[in-house]
């Protein structure tokens, strides 16, 4: 699935309305990410990092421009798709890791990781969920509920769930923002290595320069809705 995929962001804009005031969060932003490559998004708070990631996930409607994801000669255009189609696409082709509230509290660790397989009716991946948890050092926590896990363990579960389907695109919104230095390094390592090994495109928003530096390309957003793209 992850062969020959590419993400193209073409002159996208997004604003929010606050009463009579219009707040422009993203303006004319364009970039590309190739299969197996990673892009880090940095910038101060309010610069639009999370909005960009939500737009890449199809969670927000664009005002202008388009995002396309090419998967094995099929191009999915976000702008052309309705909300329901974007949801179905996200379910199948996009993994997402948040800073916190990553896990469904009422599902066990194993159930959380298996959730995308169940949603996509892929019973063949259920055994892979256990394997992933073993690889991430969580084989003894599979039947616990998330509330019993530490922050670092919860993030490892979230990464395992995000890569289970081997999606072409994985989005991570400050995945280490809530962790100590040791756990941050561990999560970043797992994320980048998993994506590289499985040829997954990774778009990661972060405040950490060290983690941003691990990406192939770096996109810096500033508070004036402008962007600067630099290869690392």
């Amino acid at each position: 699935m992850t062969q020959d995929s590419a993400l193209t962001v073409n002159k996208i804009s997004k604003h929010y309305q606050d009463g009579s005031r219009q707040i422009e969060v993203i303006r004319d932003l364009s970039f590309n990410v190739a299969a197996g490559k990673s892009l880090s998004v940095t910038g101060p708070s309010g610069s639009g990092k999370s909005t960009l990631l939500n737009a890449l996930a199809g969670l927000v409607e664009l005002d202008d421009g388009d995002i396309t994801l090419e998967i094995e000669d099929t191009i999915f255009s976000y702008r052309a798709a309705k909300e329901r189609a974007r949801t179905a696409f996200r379910r199948q082709h996009i993994g997402y890791v948040y800073q916190f509230f990553n896990l469904v509290p009422t599902l066990t660790v194993l159930e959380n990781v298996r959730l995308p397989a169940r949603l996509n009716r892929r019973p063949d991946l259920e055994a892979f969920a256990s394997t992933l948890l073993g690889d991430f050092g969580l084989s003894d926590r599979m039947h616990d509920f998330p509330e019993k896990l530490s922050g670092g363990e919860q993030q490892r579960v979230a990464v395992a769930r995000a890569v289970l389907l081997r999606p072409p695109l994985l989005l991570a919104d400050e995945p280490t923002g809530n962790l100590d230095a040791e756990n941050s390094a561990q999560i970043a390592d797992i994320l980048f290595s998993s994506c590289r090994d499985q040829n997954i495109m990774l778009v990661l928003a972060t405040h950490s320069n060290d983690i941003a530096a691990m990406a192939d390309t770096r996109l810096h957003l500033d508070a004036r809705s402008s962007a600067r793209l630099t290869p690392e």
Partner: peptide, 14 residues
């Protein structure tokens, strides 16, 4: 709400 948003992100539709 965060939990519900997470499910939405995972592609759980209405």
């Amino acid at each position: 709400q965060a939990g519900r948003q997470l499910l939405n992100t995972l592609g759980v539709h209405r």
